[in-house]
Design a protein around this nucleic acid. Structure first.
Lengths: 221, 221
DNA sequence: AATATTTTTCCGAATTTTGAACAAACGTTT
DNA sequence: AAACGTTTGTTCAAAATTCGGAAAAATATT
């Protein structure tokens, strides 16, 4: 989370910065609209907190300028009594507003809301872990006791399918359909061969792939 | 500190160069806008000193051109009386200005100010750095061990997409969709060719682009 | 028109997949 | 427990696929 705080009052900037950094975010400051625009050209912020009344270049004009090259969400900080649609909406391109005096908590809530809306919040990656067997599907990594294991494409696909269906009894037919594809018309013993290779690569965790005699296989820990 | 001095008067270039080198900086010269643009494509400067009145290509046009591929700060050198916002501000993208006749000391002060504000300032710009591979997405430049690397548009887009998805296994299909666009109906192997070119340009850091046999590629450090 | 970039195509080396053959394991029946 | 048929594990080599390199062909840019 990287936030640009634009306000000419140092006190306000300091307080907001404090809160953002307390939550593990990163905050930079700008004293006026001019500086804000410049900083936006050089950095990618997740959110901009923009005061309206400022010397040199006011908040509205700054947002207008920033909108020429960036879609970064903006939350306006303003005195009470400003017109609603000037603060929030289409006219200038800001995403939310807070009226002064505001509580930092309120501002933080707005930041999270805006970031959630614009999809900036990072989602943690799914990594499965079964004892010493780590499986990162998105990154296509498999490691056994911290050591990276290289698998062939079919082995990856097979393992991923097993993991996503932990504890489910899978027939060879189903595996062929799901992992190989509906258009595969080969021998179902092909599965066995790949199971063998996969087990070999999983070392001591070969035990997770259980044979169900007369049926197929199952991934179970 | 690496500065490009753009001015058609040799005397001015010589004096500025003297000062910059006295302070331990590095200075290169260009006689006009044309030459300046060319040099900027080939090098990464920390600051550019740009005269306005020059033959072939004037300072304003040169800055406009340079802004298409780089965010390097520019300080305009101009005769007194030019309009403020043409020299400094949004219209052309320069960062500061000095009016002639100027004292070299004054120029040096501006250089330091500008560098503090942007380039050399420690506050992180949106620049990724993987060992000696620097990737500035906003500034759209890539350097290998400090040396600027010229990439073709597709190569930039591809690399940027990789960097933004560090550690994620990417299929050729996804790359085609995201980098080429959903309406691209070409061959899968197109990706491979661009990967090859990109790897070539990344020199020793080609290793960051990992081939995932049977799937696609992944950017991993 | 001349260049630069992008896309397609082909080749060959290397890897992966596949299924047949055989061995081992299993469960049931005798 | 031994015998038997069935199912699964293992090995292996042929077949298929994949990827990088190179270069031609098509497009875009200047």
């Amino acid at each position: 989370m990287k936030v640009l705080i634009v306000d000419d009052e140092e006190m306000i900037r300091a307080v907001l910065k404090e809160y953002i950094e307390f939550e593990g975010g990163e905050a930079e400051e700008a004293q006026d609209g001019m500086e804000a625009v410049k900083k936006c050209r050089e950095n990618n912020y997740d959110v901009i907190l923009m005061d309206v009344m400022m010397p040199r270049l006011d908040g509205f004009s700054a947002v207008k300028e920033i909108r020429k090259f960036s879609e970064t969400p903006v939350i306006m900080l303003s005195a009470r009594g400003e017109e609603y649609d000037k603060l929030f909406g289409f006219e200038i391109g800001s995403d939310d507003y807070v009226t002064k005096p505001f509580s930092p908590k309120e501002v933080m809530a707005r930041i999270h809301a805006v970031m959630k809306r614009s999809g900036t919040e990072k989602k943690p990656r799914d990594v499965y872990e079964f004892e010493g067997l780590k499986i990162d599907i998105v990154g296509r990594n498999v490691s056994v006791n911290g050591e990276r294991v290289e698998l062939t494409p079919k082995e990856y696909e097979l393992l991923f399918y097993f993991v996503e269906n932990e504890g489910v009894a899978l027939t060879r037919e189903r595996l062929l359909n799901q992992v190989w594809g509906y258009d595969f018309y080969g021998d179902d013993r092909t599965v066995d061969t790949h199971i063998k290779m996969l087990r070999g690569n999983l070392k001591e965790y070969r035990k997770f792939i259980v044979t169900l005699r007369g049926l197929g296989y199952k991934f179970e820990t």
